[in-house]
Design a protein around this nucleic acid. Structure first.
Lengths: 224, 224
DNA sequence: GACACCTTTGACGCGTTCTTGACGGCCGAT
DNA sequence: ATCGGCCGTCAAGAACGCGTCAAAGGTGTC
């Protein structure tokens, strides 16, 4: 989840930003003045900062410089002042973008996307741990005791359905539908075949599975 | 010297931008329409693109997408249209900033500084090492045991997609989409053909690839 | 107009994966 | 205790996907 720090002393604007950003999947922290902003930034280490100039306690450039001292996160400045000199000062202090109020919320979100797009796809990918095995669904990579395990396409699809429903029971019908297609309803032998292969590759003791469980007569379940 | 590509069909604006940017130490190339822009970008490999929308031959988004396939260089869009929808479209197509005309030249320069500041010291020379081979994506240069290796445009695009997702599996569909276009879904023979060429040029033993790996039935993966 | 280079297309052999069928064991129901 | 259903396992043939070679378009250059 991308973390955004919103700095604004006007509660309504801060609230509106929080709601809109949260609705689009960002994790939002807010601060009402410069001192709070710097403290919050140190605490949450945001991936992006939306900064309103004209804070009660500090000058905008000071806040930017305070952040830039240790963070490379993009800073998107909001301001009521449209004068070019203000914009130039903020940008040269280290801001990445400058939007004048009143602003269109859609445009702001687009600028947030543009800013996070650059620094975004750097590192993080969600890995699921299954005992001694780690599964990276995005990279399509499985490691068991450090070295990689190869899965066939069908094995991947089956594992993915189970892993995306952690702890939940997935019926045989649903598994067959999502992996083989809607025309497959009763081919439970496929499931037996591939579940056995997955256990052989992922479980410490394939005969006594701990994470890939059978619910007789119903379906299968992945237990983290 | 930082290289800037200015794309504008109005000669006066292009001239004004060239003069101002040159005066501030940038190396400026100009193009008057979309086709010229894409060709010039391929030739000079700019560090930043200033792009006027409303070109005579192509839609703005097309130009942006055409550039984004090649390069990560910041794109600063100029436009006479102030509508939010236009801005959002351009930013989501891959632009980094959007300035409406008439613009203040000082502000534009500040935005140029802000954009180049990010990409400048951060990813200065993204040279990737593949065993005895080094790949410099920005400079479009490949060296194997010191000598230069020539890649065709298609080979470059394919290699770039893979290198930008180190360790991650890239599906056949995504590769086809990003290199040949969204209408290509099942032409896996293209991939086989060009992967073989890349391996012949980059791998020590093309028959036993170590870095450009095949995941049967799914896609390809670059392992650093 | 000839040439060189790149892209597109077709075909073949081979290894891997998928599909299919059959068998035995465990468990609950009769 | 017996039976039937369900699951795990094993072992085939069939089908698919990949690497490779070869050759036909296509485009720009000299």
């Amino acid at each position: 989840m991308i973390k955004v720090l919103v700095v604004d002393d006007e509660p309504q604007i801060a609230r509106a930003l929080r709601i809109n950003l949260s609705a689009h999947g960002y994790e939002v922290t807010t601060a009402a003045d410069g001192a709070q902003a710097l403290r919050a930034a140190a605490a949450v280490v945001p991936d992006l900062v939306v900064l309103d100039l004209g804070l009660p306690d500090m000058d905008g450039s000071e806040v930017i410089e305070g952040l830039r001292g240790w963070s490379k996160a993009p800073i998107l400045v909001l301001s009521g002042r449209a004068a070019s000199a203000e914009k130039i000062a903020a940008l040269d202090a280290g801001a990445d973008d400058y939007v004048t109020k009143p602003f269109d919320i859609g445009e702001l979100l687009a600028r947030v996307r543009a800013a996070t797009r650059r620094s975004g796809p750097g590192s993080d990918s969600p890995v699921t741990a299954i005992g001694p095995v780690t599964v990276d669904l995005a990279a399509r990579e499985v490691r068991k005791d450090g070295d990689e395990v190869r899965l066939t396409p069908t094995e991947w699809q089956l594992l993915e359905v189970l892993l995306r429903n952690p702890g939940k029971l997935v019926s045989q019908r649903e598994l067959l539908h999502r992996v083989w297609g809607p025309n497959y309803d009763r081919e439970t032998n496929y499931l037996r075949q591939y579940m056995a292969q997955l256990r052989r590759k992922l479980e410490a003791d394939p005969a006594r599975p701990v994470h890939l469980l059978t619910e007789p007569g119903m379906g299968y379940r992945f237990r983290p």
